[in-house]
Design a protein around this nucleic acid. Structure first.
Length: 434
RNA sequence: UGGGGUGUAGCCAAGCGGUAAGGCAACUGGCUGUUAACCAGUUUAUGCGGAGGUUCGAAUCCUUCCACCCCAGCCA
């Protein structure tokens, strides 16, 4: 058996007429008495394998009775094209070797509640829907890296353990760092990527970030992956152009590479196909007026809340940017608007279909004095930002950057109701297991 | 942290003051083309998230605790 060609089910079509070896797990089985069907999965696809009482030795035929859902096994046989089989190809079984019997696999091919599935996330990953979603995640990650690589952006890995530095407001996870006091899990790599930007020109980081916020909503995780680009000599407008180009690239990549997966999760791709530049852009002030005209209670100076985000996100059929927010609701490092002191040069990008914010970006404050003033205004510890301020002392240039939330992007592209399925092992307020 | 909700067998779920439906899974048998196969049968809760209480009687009403879900704030 082992001297046969091992074949991934996803490539089974190339082996029609040949005898191959499949290694995987039993997804399900059916029988009509003298004919048995095994559904075997191997991570690439599911394959139907058949045997009849006359086609195999009795011992092989009887192996069917022993097999249980998710038992690991090797099956050999001849590949045949057959319209009756799901996937169009079928395996005529010669031999079966059971590697391990699975006893009472908890997730049956029926409906289950979210709580139960999350508790069994380590097994839930094996279901076709979860495999499809995480495969799309894989393609999205790859497309992002390729996008930046092709544009000659340099990948800069930023530290996960940091001293107290970052944005204001958000709560951080802390841990004792030897004798040096407290260390915090990074909530952003931005400040570091700004330093690297002054070394390489265009850079990005892509890693996990942590927020100890007690948010329990469908769009929040305590640990999530973020792509942060930082571009020297880009203004806010150049920054938005780059964001749009990236989003268009990711979506077209997924549409090209993940057709099968999108079908499995039954994603209606109508809106995804419309994700072509240019995207609509609306200033914060216009957005407030638009929202007020639609009956929202938002006032100038207030942040755009979840409900408002949903109203806006339903007003467009493709991603769009809201730019130039009031200074007082945004981070200290954003560059003030040259003509409007109360505004900053920034933008959020919101995904359509009610998904909301996926990107936050801004032109950075590159002026030493006004940045120091802002840090003091926010009552941040100036000493911690000394190295960051150095960047404004030694060859400061206009620069911009943005952060894209990976899980929110996956959730939107897959059309999921909640971010928790967009990451293999979600970390949430009430979830640390498995 | 506020507001709302749920917890009954391995899973899903009915019952809403009178003594625990049903389905799936599992198990047994039947079927040579099944598609979450089908058909027939068998088994599973002195107990309904935990602890108190009211009552002749509690899954059901009350108190309290726990776990989880949804919405809001914060943000990616």
């Amino acid at each position: 058996m082992s001297n046969l060609t091992h074949c991934k089910i996803g490539e089974i079509g190339k082996f029609a007429g040949q005898e191959v070896l499949i290694r995987g797990w039993l997804y399900n089985k059916r029988s009509s008495g003298k004919i048995h069907f095994l559904l075997v999965r191997d991570g690439s696809e599911i394959l139907q394998a058949v045997m009849t009482k006359d086609s195999v030795p009795e011992k092989t035929f009887k192996a069917f009775d022993l097999l249980t859902q998710e038992s690991s096994l090797m099956v050999s046989g001849k590949v045949r094209e057959d319209k009756r089989a799901p996937g169009g190809y079928e395996l005529e079984i010669n031999e079966i070797e059971i590697i391990q019997f699975a006893k009472d696999y908890p997730i049956t091919p029926k409906e289950h509640g979210v709580a139960f599935l999350m508790e069994n996330r380590h097994l839930w990953l094996r279901s076709s829907r979860q495999i499809a979603i995480l495969s799309i995640r894989n393609e999205i990650i790859f497309s992002i890296r390729k996008f930046f690589y092709d544009k000659k952006f340099v990948l800069i890995d930023t530290p996960i353990l940091t001293s107290a530095i970052g944005e204001t407001g958000t709560t951080l996870f802390e841990t004792q760092y030897f004798d040096l006091g407290k260390a915090y899990l990074a909530q952003t790599g931005q400040l570091y990527v700004e330093a690297a930007c002054m070394a390489f020109g265009n850079v990005y980081c892509f890693g996990p970030t942590f927020r100890a916020e007690k948010s329990k909503t469908r769009r929040h995780l305590t640990e999530f992956w973020m792509v942060e680009a930082e571009e020297a000599f880009y203004d806010n407008n150049d920054n938005m152009n780059l964001q749009e180009e990236l989003i268009e690239y990711i979506v077209s990549w997924v549409l090209e590479k993940c057709q099968k997966e999108l079908e499995v999760i039954e994603r209606d791709t109508t809106f995804l196909k419309k994700v072509k530049r240019p995207f609509p852009r609306i200033s914060y002030e216009e957005a407030v007026k638009l929202l007020q005209s639609k009956g929202a209670k938002i006032k100038f100076g207030e942040d755009v809340g979840g409900d408002e985000e949903t109203i806006l996100a339903n007003s467009y059929d493709k991603p769009f940017c809201v730019y130039n927010y009031p200074k007082k609701i945004k981070a200290f490092y954003m560059k003030p608007h040259p003509e409007r002191e109360d505004l900053v040069l920034n933008n959020d990008m919101l995904a359509p279909e009610g998904y909301g914010e996926i990107i936050g970006g801004s032109q950075r404050n590159d002026d030493y004095d006004s940045l120091v003033a802002r840090i003091k205004e926010e009552k941040l510890p100036l000493e911690a930002y000394e190295w960051y301020l150095d960047l404004r002392k030694y060859g400061s240039v206009p620069h911009s950057g943005f952060g894209l939330g990976l899980e929110r992007t996956v959730t939107w592209i897959c059309g999921l109701p909640h971010v928790r399925e967009s990451i293999p092992f979600p970390r949430m307020l009430y979830r640390l297991y498995p």
